[in-house]
Every structure is written in C-alpha cells, then in structure tokens.
C-alpha cells in the first residue's frame, strides 16, 4: 500500500476514482483546499476528521452532485466534468452512496432495494415491466441477495416507514449495492446506530469490499476506521493532513496535528 506523498503541505494520493487538486467552497467560504485523494477497487479508504471539516462536501463532489470550483474529479484518469451528461450518468451509476440518513422512499423495503435496477431500464422496458409486474419478479433474486447481506431478507414486503432507524440504514445500504456499483461512498452511515446495527453494517462493508468494491467511508468514529479501512486519511480544516495504511496512521502519524486528533487532544 502506497503512502501518500506531501505536496504543498497537502497529502496527495491517486486511484481509479480520484479527486485531483480539488478546492471547493460555498458563499465565499472555502470548505475544501487542494485535495488530491483516490481509491481503487477492492480497498476501503476511511476519511476521518472532526465534524464540519468538509468530509460530506468531499463525498458529494466524488458522487458528482456538484462540480468542484477548482481541480478535477477523475474516473479512470478522465475528468468526469469534461464528459457529456449521458457519459457522466454512466459513471455515476458505477458509484453508489449511502448517507447519514437512510432517505428511504415511500413503499416497501423491496421497492427501495429494486429502485436502482428499475431506473437503469429503458422507458419502454420500464412501462412493459410495470404493466406486467415482471420488473418486480425479475428483481426478486437481486433484492433477496442484498437484503441477506444486511440480515433483512425476511422483511422485503414491510413498509419502509415501519423500519427502525438501524433497519432503515441497512436497507439503504442494500439499495446502494443492488445495482452492483464499483465504488461505494458512505457518509457517516452508522453515526445514529446502536452497536448491533453498526456491527451488521460493518460486516456488510467488509463483504462488499471482499467482492471487489472500492469503499470510501467518511466517519468521525476513529475506532470504526481502524476496524474497516485499509487506508485512512485524516482531514482537518478542508485539507488532508495525513494519509496512509490505517495501522501506520493510527500508530505513527507524521503530522503532529493528526497525532493530536487521533490521541483525542485536538478538540473542535
């Protein structure tokens, strides 16, 4: 595993899905400052840092919600914002995301998990499958497989509104995986969950990575980063101040501020 190299005081890394020299802000306030960070298939990268340091903004840029003010978002070395909307959509569909809130849609658990499959069909197919009910039947094996991953295969036809917070987040995880993305972005996915649901989701993250997914996990839970991630980046005030193999970052960080943060001495 390559250790990040320092450039202009910022750690720079690359990968198949990467940010290169990205700066971004809102209403005149800089949130991200010259970030270069990447992830490859089959590895889990944790981004740790205090709340408000820019982790969510970073993930939203990687997920192509917004265009960065400066720098590029790259997939296979191509700046995604130079592509047409159709081409960018194809890349977006290879990157799944789970938010801090489950954000489930009305309807059943089954409907939520099959949603990404439905929107990938052509409109004539969607209408045909909707009229015949074939779309739901076709999706059954995929829905069951991904709900098994989070231990909810017996709850497929429960209304999403009846789920507990932890169950809803597990469904959101299954939904993000059902369309077989190559990368998965997780924005504080367990911050509101109890230990049992957290453990189930961490196992699911591990299983997804074992299948070859590249995982980016933004979290303020340092122990979770230690449990889940191959590499860890420490983010402070919109900059990546430390990045490397998780064990090394936690035991021997180079940046003194990263050490203070990890030791719990840097309070924000």
């Amino acid at each position: 595993m390559m250790k990040g190299r320092y450039e202009n005081g910022n750690v720079t890394e690359t990968g198949r899905l990467a940010l290169a020299g990205v700066s971004h802000g809102f209403d005149g306030t800089d949130v991200l400052d010259d970030i270069s960070l990447g992830v490859n298939p089959g590895e889990a990268l944790a981004i740790i840092g205090p709340s408000g340091t820019g982790k969510t903004t970073l993930l939203r840029l990687v997920s192509m919600f917004d265009r960065p003010d400066e720098g590029t978002v790259e997939f296979d070395g191509t700046d995604v914002w130079t592509l047409s909307e159709r081409e960018r959509l194809d890349i977006r569909r290879r990157v799944g995301m789970v938010f801090q809130e489950a954000n489930l849609f009305d309807g059943t658990v089954h409907r939520n998990v099959r949603y990404p499959l439905g929107i990938r069909q052509s409109w004539p197919d969607r209408i045909r499958n909707w009229l015949s009910g074939l779309g739901r039947r076709k999706a059954n094996p995929v829905v069951t497989e991904h709900l098994q991953l989070v231990g909810l295969e017996d709850d497929q036809f429960r209304p999403a509104s009846s789920l507990s917070g932890g169950e809803a987040q597990r469904v959101a995880f299954a939904r993000a995986l059902s369309s077989a993305p190559e990368f998965l972005l997780l924005d504080e996915p367990t911050s509101d969950l109890d230990p049992r649901n957290t453990a189930i989701l961490e196992d699911a993250i591990d299983a997804a990575r074992s299948r070859g997914l590249g995982v980016v996990l933004a979290t303020h839970d340092m122990h979770q980063a230690e449990r889940v991630a191959d590499r860890t980046a420490v983010m402070l005030e919109g900059r990546i101040i430390e990045c490397g193999p998780t064990e090394q970052v936690f035991t021997d960080p180079e940046d003194p501020r990263a050490r203070k943060f990890i030791d719990g001495e840097l309070i924000y």
Partner: peptide, 18 residues
C-alpha cells in the same frame, strides 16, 4: 419532500426525470 429523498434518487444513478 425531504432533500435527502432527491439526493438518494440522484445518488442511485437517477436522471433529472427520475
């Protein structure tokens, strides 16, 4: 409608119409 729902639809690979 919660912004999170729109974000989720977009993040799942939805088009503007979706």
């Amino acid at each position: 409608v919660d912004d999170g729902v729109r974000d989720a639809a977009y993040a799942m690979g939805g088009t503007r119409l979706d």
